[in-house]
Design a binder for these strands. Structure first.
Length: 207
DNA sequence: CGCCTTTGACCCGCGC
DNA sequence: GCGCGGGTCAAAGGCG
């Protein structure tokens, strides 16, 4: 199971869940180990939208996900709704009933350097870099101590956009990809045609 | 030729 | 002050 310390390097982080519906991606929903994901204020059916988890769901197969889905408070919502809602949550921190709750972390001493907002999530996937609709350029790779998998560093290729992401595999379960985003995009996702079909539901989700 | 990845060097914050 | 480790830089090479 997820080690809470995994997220301890962030002053303030949020974890959101999503599930790629009707795609050829191999990724499955990440494991929520806490009830920190949230219930959106307005729910609307939209199979092409990201899903937000309101309580832990640990599917191992797609079919299993479908069955555990029934009766479980998992909702889909329109992309635009999700976008605004998540933005509000990031700004306001949400509340007990609505919003994205910060991960409960041990106290971290203050840093002088102001960090961009970050959030991370886990996805079960064969590929390291999930198609989130944006174009990324790799600028570094490091072997992190006591881990067997390297950590890769990516930057958004858009001019003046300073968003970065880190990608690494979970030490305890190499099937799981940990993706950490830092900063907010100042532009829309790239609109490369052909290959965007599979990732269309991600668009706007990550700003 | 332009854009990308690779990879060793470098930088810097932190703990001792 | 020093060493360690994570993050970034940038030169070199690959690829379409």
């Amino acid at each position: 199971m997820l080690n809470q310390n995994l997220f301890d390097d962030q002053d303030r982080s949020y974890q959101l869940g999503f599930f790629p519906v009707n795609t050829n991606l191999t990724s499955l929903p990440f494991w929520c180990n806490k009830t920190f994901a949230a219930i959106p204020p307005s729910l609307q059916e939209d199979d092409d939208a990201p899903l937000l988890f309101s309580e832990p769901v640990i599917p191992k197969q797609k079919e299993e996900f479908t069955s555990s889905f029934a009766g479980s408070p998992i909702f889909s919502l329109q992309k635009s709704t999700a976008n605004h809602w998540i933005n509000d949550c990031m700004r306001n921190g949400g509340n007990e009933n609505h919003g994205v709750l910060p991960i409960n972390m041990k106290k971290i001493k203050s840093r002088k350097k102001v960090r961009e907002p970050r959030f991370c999530f886990k996805t079960m996937s064969d590929v390291d870099v999930l198609d989130d609709g944006y174009k990324w350029r790799k600028y570094g790779q490091k072997i992190v101590k006591n881990t067997q998998h390297p950590r890769s560093y990516y930057r958004c290729t858009q001019d003046n956009c300073r968003v970065k992401k880190r990608v690494e595999r979970l030490q305890e379960d190499s099937r799981m990809v940990i993706t950490t985003y830092e900063g907010r995009h100042i532009h829309s996702p790239s609109h490369d045609e052909e290959d965007s079909r599979a990732s269309s539901q991600f668009k706007n989700f990550f700003w």
